[in-house]
């Protein structure tokens, strides 16, 4: 691709897609004085405080074992599945504690889609993968399911590639397509939040590029939190970046500040590849 300095004409109100000037966004997810323990003695997260804005992409970065995935999995209470865990402090979504004893975890997870490092389609057709959660909830009306499948696959930029083979097994898709299928499945229930735990680490650069473009599109509708080891990916796709080390939040700021002028020397060492 050849770059020129030719000016692109923009219509009034349409902006160049350059560095994002962050308009004030109400904080959507709030992590307050949060500590997390795998058992009564093993503390893995320490006094975390961060506010995640609505409809932005927030990246969690840091070396392996720094606690970024643990925090991510706390947001939808996936860690509840582990024996002996406990927490202190709170995480709120839209002002409501996710640890409220009256809150049903199922209702929380309906608001939050999750995409994992390795794509994990169900051993079913492409169509049935998307509608699985609706069927579990007893929603079997064909017209509704068809609408959800098309909307979700379009949302995951996969519709054009699979629309003629919806009844075929999901395992016949390529790695990148399977991951986009998982994203489509994650947004089928119209969640508000998408958690992504290293969603591109098993993908080639072309598939990675498609997922990154997709993330850029999805943030218009969803609040996205992504864990990534790929520094350039964090720089490309996120609006804010949080750097964790040994369970502590070292620095959290606008992504361009983290990558252009970080305040903490540890952050600088990490993002410039000199950590350790």
């Amino acid at each position: 691709m050849t770059h020129t300095f030719q000016q692109k004409a923009f219509k009034p109100g349409e902006g160049a897609d350059g560095p994002e000037t962050e308009s004030p966004q109400p904080d959507f997810i709030k992590v307050k004085d949060f500590n997390f323990f795998y058992d009564s003695t093993v503390q893995v997260l320490f006094d975390l405080n961060l506010d995640i804005p609505r409809q932005k992409v927030t990246a969690f970065i840091g070396p392996s074992g720094c606690g970024k995935s643990t925090l991510l999995r706390n947001i939808n209470r996936m860690n509840d599945l582990i024996d002996g865990i406990r927490h202190e402090g709170d995480i709120t979504i839209d002002g409501h504690s996710i640890f409220d004893p009256h809150l049903e975890v199922i209702s929380l997870r309906k608001r939050i889609g999750m995409v994992f490092q390795k794509s994990n389609p169900f051993p079913k057709s492409i169509y049935e993968n998307i509608v699985y959660s609706l069927r579990v909830a007893g929603r079997n009306k064909r017209s509704e399911l068809d609408e959800v499948v098309e909307r979700s696959l379009r949302g995951a930029a996969l519709w054009d590639e699979v629309k003629d083979r919806l009844k075929e097994s999901a395992f016949g898709l390529s790695g990148g397509q399977m991951q986009r299928l998982c994203i489509a499945r994650a947004i089928a229930n119209r969640p508000e939040i998408l958690l992504m735990d290293e969603p591109c680490s098993a993908l080639d650069p072309i598939a990675t590029g498609k997922i990154e473009d997709l993330i850029h599109e999805l943030k218009k509708e969803y609040t996205i939190v992504i864990v990534t080891h790929n520094m350039q990916q964090a720089a490309r796709v996120s609006d804010r970046t949080a750097f964790f080390y040994l369970g502590k939040l070292i620095e959290y700021d606008r992504t361009e500040d983290i990558f252009m002028n970080p305040k903490n020397p540890q952050t600088e060492a990490y993002v410039s590849g000199r950590f350790g």
Partner: peptide, 9 residues
């Protein structure tokens, strides 16, 4: 090398 932060500057 895709420099960032102080290296980029």
């Amino acid at each position: 090398r895709a420099p960032v932060a102080g290296d980029m500057r």
